[in-house]
Computed example of a mutant assay.
Amino acid sequence: MSRDTSDRRSASRALSALALLALTAGAVTACSDRESASRHSASPSATSSASPRAGQAGGAKLHMIDNGGHRLAFHVTRGHGSTIVLDSGGGEDSSYWEDLVPELHGATGATVITYDRAGLGKSDVVPGPWKVKSAVSDLESGLQQLGVTEDVTLVSHSQAGGIATYFARDNPKMLSGAVLVDANLPPFFTDGEIARLVAFSGPQVDAAKKDPDDPRNRQLISTAESFVQTNKAYHKVTWPDSVPATVIVSEKTPFDGSPEDARRWRGAAASFVQDGPHRTLVTAKGSSHDVPKDRPDLVLEEIESMVAAQH
């Protein structure tokens, strides 16, 4: 084997490991200020108040929701008619959407909701392996307690694609549509791909265990603990035909520099769209996996189109 070939394979392995981080704990792109914010849960006495963070932007109000003994932060910008729920990727809290919320609210007039998943932002930490069904329960409980029961457009990035798929399966009548932004989709997680990701990410997971109190590391560790069984099950889940979905796939994908994995990622998006009615595939030209930051114009356009199409 030539040295050039060996170097390329090593680079591919490293990029695949980084991609797993992006798909699970968001450690590639999470910013230090988000990490700092994630170290603090809201005080037990908090119920609702004006939130000082955008995204949270403008007139957003903080609501602390209890579900099964832990509390979750939901940030609500009130509007009229429909509701847009923004769910960030692994390791990211609600502040990820802070620039998009006022744009969406102004363009659609809809209520816009962001939230912090367990262990992130102002939400309580839940010990143990990450469980997608628990995450779905948190979102369901939050929306129910906020009085949101119908006409929801769900926007999900990266790891939140798994939450969206189970949520749509269990609550199809609540959703009027979804925009899946370079999201984890069932066709991608074949046994072979799961094994590749686990093998490639081992060193990063081991490194994270040296500082488990870091919120991003905590998320990575908890997700890695359940990664195989979670995604083997997820591979078999189907999206309900009654819920329209726009799939935005990044041009570079989470696997920029690893052609085989990038091809599989794009193929999974195409397969998902072809497998059911009312589904559209859009490519975010020039974008990395971080589509909401690289191409906010495109994400805004596709959300607006989805909301408009249902009314």
Rank of each mutant, 00 (worst) to 15 (best):
R263E: 15
S250V: 10
V273S: 01
A262Q: 01
E251P: 03
P259W: 10
R279V: 02
R264T: 09
E260R: 15
K252Y: 15
E251C: 05
S250Y: 12
F255H: 11
R279W: 04
G257R: 00
K252I: 13
S271Q: 08
P254R: 02
P277R: 14
D275V: 05
D275E: 08
S250P: 12
V282A: 00
E260I: 14
T283C: 00
S258N: 13
T280Y: 01
T253G: 07
T253V: 09
D256W: 11
S271V: 09
A270I: 03
F255S: 06
S271A: 11
T283I: 10
W265Q: 02
F272W: 06
G276L: 06
E260D: 15
R279G: 06
G276R: 04
H278Q: 07
K252A: 15
K252E: 15
F272A: 06
G276P: 00
D275I: 01
D275F: 05
R266E: 13
S250T: 11
P254L: 06
S271N: 06
K252D: 15
E251I: 05
G257K: 03
T283A: 05
H278A: 08
V273Y: 02
F272Q: 03
A268N: 00
A284S: 03
L281H: 12
R264M: 14
P254I: 05
G257E: 04
G267E: 02
Q274P: 11
A268P: 05
T253Q: 04
T253C: 08
D256G: 14
R266A: 10
H278G: 09
R266H: 10
D261C: 13
S271K: 10
R263Y: 10
R264F: 11
E260K: 14
F255E: 07
